[in-house]
Design a binder for these strands. Structure first.
Lengths: 255, 255
DNA sequence: CAGTGGTCTAGACCACTGC
DNA sequence: CAGTGGTCTAGACCACTGA
């Protein structure tokens, strides 16, 4: 009667208790030594469960995005809200909006949005970036990167890549925020955006991504190539915490 | 000089070797006891690395979708091809195509597609399904589920939910394939599809999903609600292997 | 300082695969 | 049968947190 492994029984029990509200969001689970004792009833002779087994159970919950850990503090329950990003319409494409597109989009949804650490750099295009922008391998690109917070919590990391000839002479190359929005700035310099192609993938986070997002859960990656009538003008790669984000697309079948 | 943990050094080294082609797709890595010896040079005194440490390294690679394991056999390198699904157009919406939409879509891409284990059931709608289809909680729905293979390998799991009143009297309620396609079948019964809304999320696989997909990597989940002019007519949930799948959307900004 | 999680070791027994 | 990975234990030392 193939019984489940111990670490899965522990994980299943903790998951059930968390979802039932026994450990509300933000609270700490019992410490690992305490859990060793708590689950001693699972041992035929009532001996305590070994620490590695407890840790294997906690690791599952961490990958599911249910809990996270802090060295020296403990394991705590993560907030379970999910934020839906409507991706089938580019915010700020229509001119004259006057505010930063991301902040505007989120304000509509009733959230507190914030951008941090805006940085600009000039780099050699990686093969992926060159392919997306249809550039020669090794061409120079301008990269603008930013960290985004939602209601004070880390939420996504974004990098936008512009072909050097396009960014040159625009505000995109300066390390400051573009008040009227980057799409409008491109339009003013003759690169009006008319369409884009998204590719959505998912994967485990890098160590840097996990550190910023405060999560070991998988990430949702949105790769967006925007183009004018003539050519690709921008590649934007956005990495979202997968446990709290969904991407939405509205599509009409028969135009 | 904060040196990296041992298991990360091992994982990084194996990852590099795999990507460099030292262990081509389909081949087996050295066994765990062998790897213990192989990395003894990382120990200051040249002693072998412990098995748990090796296993922690292999677990990372498994979550990244780089390798997979079979009990009694070993750890082998997974194929790294990725398949892009164009999701911004519903295959088979235009009437008169005559073949199954999924098989047609994939044949175009030059792949061998196959559906397996088509099953039909009547269930009570879960809260999520009821919300998507705008039904009363507890309403009955018809569920059609299928497993999909690509080039002979498991690729995705799909469940389609239809409101009972819509499926009744159509071929959707019978456990057989609908040769002219389910969208055409809906149209013939007065439920012509005119639009849909997708929500894309990602998460770790359940045990059943991991077993079928042969992968411990995260999954991409596509939730699609199709609607006629009057109402939602179908909810389709598709679970893709995240390591080999991207969803693509083409969007025009200014129609 | 005591308590927490992070890393690592050594060894045990089991279940599965293929010869 | 020998060799593989799957599970589990016991114990060690470290790094980080907060009182």
């Amino acid at each position: 009667m193939a019984t489940e492994p111990l670490y899965q029984q522990v994980a299943d029990d903790l998951r059930t208790k968390i979802l039932a509200g026994e450990y509300p969001a933000g609270t700490f689970l019992p410490s690992e030594p305490t859990l060793e004792e708590d689950y001693s009833h699972l041992d035929p002779e009532g001996r305590k469960v070994s620490r590695n087994t407890i840790r294997q159970a906690l690791a599952s919950l961490q990958n599911e995005g249910l809990i996270d850990k802090r060295q020296g503090r403990g394991s705590f329950v993560r907030e379970q809200r999910t934020f839906i990003v409507l991706a089938s319409r580019e915010e700020g494409v229509r001119p004259g909006e006057g505010t930063d597109a991301f902040v505007a989009a989120v304000r509509v949804a009733g959230r507190q949005a914030e951008q941090r650490n805006l940085q600009t750099a000039i780099r050699v295009a990686s093969p992926e970036v060159a392919a997306g922008l249809k550039l020669e391998p090794g061409a120079a690109v301008v990269v603008r990167s930013v960290q985004r917070m939602l209601d004070g919590r880390p939420w996504s990391l974004q990098e936008s890549f512009y072909p050097m000839e396009i960014a040159q002479g625009t505000k995109l190359i300066s390390p400051e925020n573009v008040e009227h929005g980057t799409i409008e700035e491109l339009r003013r310099h003759g690169h009006a955006q008319i369409a884009y192609r998204d590719e959505v993938e998912c994967r485990m986070p890098t160590r840097e991504e996990a550190d910023f997002l405060g999560s070991e859960a998988p990430v949702l990656v949105l790769n967006r190539v925007a183009r004018s009538a003539e050519r690709p003008i921008r590649l934007t790669v956005t990495v979202y915490d997968g446990a709290s984000t969904r991407l939405a697309y509205e599509v009409d079948d028969l135009p």
